[in-house]
Computed example of a mutant assay.
Amino acid sequence: RAYPRTLDELSSHIGIPELRELVASFLYYQTNLEPLPDDLPLPPCPPLDGPIYVFHSAAATFYAPSDISGIGGMRRERIRATPSWYRGPPRYDCVFAEKDNTLDGFLGLHAARVRLFFSFKHSGIEYPCALVHWFSPVADEPDDLTGMWVVEPDVNVDGTRSYGIVHLDCILRAAHLIPVYGDAVLPPDFHPSQSLDAFRAFYVNKFADHHAHEIAY
């Protein structure tokens, strides 16, 4: 599938009007050590060097010694962000992204859903990125009954989804979110691919595998 190669055209194509502002914020924090003061506006997005390239997947390689896989505990998995999976509905996987490496477990991580993998160059440096939809914990500790953290989608004041852009180096691995189902009955034509859009809260599944259990506690 062909994607536009300019920022404004890509923004219109994927239906994310704030994409230019998100790229501007991403580049500011990639090129400045100090955070932007609250009383200063975000600088405009600088010109990019050449076209933007979009990808439907990215590979995560990480150390998981408790899982019997790979050489010396190394593991590799594919994270998808595609508008059609095997000519069917879209697939936008969830991930764990680094937040604060001084905190243990899920306190030091973000849960996010990848909307787009893309890369561009600025000032001669290539930036492989992910456009993500954020999820935030509903409490300061895991759920008492299940032992899993519960998260909910972040939204803006107008009710639209809250997006951000992260460098691919910040993505640790794929994450599995399980809907908090409640008592409502799902319609007969409900498709599993709609789950992350339909439910209001999700369990962060630390029982997906050994490594997830070690990082999402």
Rank of each mutant, 00 (worst) to 15 (best):
residue 2 A to K: 03
residue 3 Y to M: 09
residue 3 Y to G: 02
residue 4 P to D: 14
residue 7 L to A: 07
residue 7 L to Y: 09
residue 12 S to V: 10
residue 13 H to K: 08
residue 14 I to A: 10
residue 14 I to N: 15
residue 15 G to D: 10
residue 16 I to S: 07
residue 17 P to Q: 14
residue 17 P to A: 10
residue 17 P to H: 06
residue 18 E to N: 09
residue 21 E to T: 05
residue 27 L to D: 08
residue 30 Q to L: 01
residue 31 T to D: 11
residue 32 N to D: 10
residue 32 N to C: 13
residue 34 E to K: 12
residue 37 P to A: 06
residue 41 P to F: 03
residue 41 P to M: 10
residue 44 P to A: 09
residue 46 P to Y: 07
residue 47 P to W: 03
residue 48 L to M: 05
residue 51 P to D: 11
residue 52 I to F: 11
residue 53 Y to I: 01
residue 56 H to Q: 14
residue 60 A to D: 01
residue 62 F to L: 06
residue 62 F to D: 04
residue 65 P to Q: 01
residue 66 S to E: 12
residue 69 S to M: 06
residue 72 G to H: 02
residue 72 G to S: 12
residue 74 M to L: 13
residue 84 S to P: 02
residue 85 W to Y: 15
residue 85 W to T: 02
residue 87 R to Q: 15
residue 88 G to C: 00
residue 89 P to L: 12
residue 93 D to M: 00
residue 94 C to M: 00
residue 95 V to T: 11
residue 96 F to Y: 15
residue 97 A to V: 02
residue 100 D to T: 06
residue 102 T to E: 11
residue 104 D to S: 13
residue 104 D to H: 15
residue 104 D to E: 14
residue 106 F to L: 05
residue 106 F to M: 10
residue 107 L to V: 09
residue 112 A to P: 10
residue 112 A to W: 02
residue 112 A to N: 08
residue 114 V to I: 07
residue 114 V to F: 05
residue 118 F to P: 03
residue 119 S to V: 00
residue 121 K to A: 15
residue 123 S to I: 02
residue 123 S to C: 11
residue 125 I to A: 13
residue 126 E to F: 05
residue 128 P to A: 12
residue 129 C to F: 07
residue 129 C to W: 00
residue 132 V to R: 03
residue 134 W to D: 09
residue 136 S to Q: 12
residue 136 S to H: 15
residue 138 V to S: 11
residue 138 V to E: 13
residue 140 D to P: 12
residue 143 D to L: 03
residue 143 D to F: 02
residue 143 D to A: 05
residue 143 D to T: 01
residue 145 L to G: 05
residue 149 W to Y: 12
residue 150 V to L: 11
residue 153 P to C: 07
residue 163 Y to P: 05
residue 163 Y to C: 03
residue 166 V to R: 14
residue 169 D to P: 00
residue 170 C to Y: 06
residue 172 L to R: 07
residue 172 L to F: 09
residue 174 A to P: 04
residue 174 A to F: 04
residue 176 H to M: 07
residue 176 H to E: 13
residue 178 I to P: 01
residue 179 P to K: 07
residue 180 V to K: 09
residue 182 G to T: 08
residue 188 P to Y: 04
residue 190 F to Y: 08
residue 191 H to D: 15
residue 192 P to R: 00
residue 193 S to W: 03
residue 194 Q to A: 11
residue 196 L to V: 02
residue 197 D to F: 07
residue 197 D to G: 06
residue 198 A to K: 05
residue 199 F to Y: 12
residue 202 F to S: 14
residue 209 D to L: 00
residue 213 H to A: 15
residue 213 H to K: 14
residue 214 E to P: 06
residue 215 I to D: 12
residue 216 A to I: 02
residue 216 A to Q: 06
residue 217 Y to V: 01
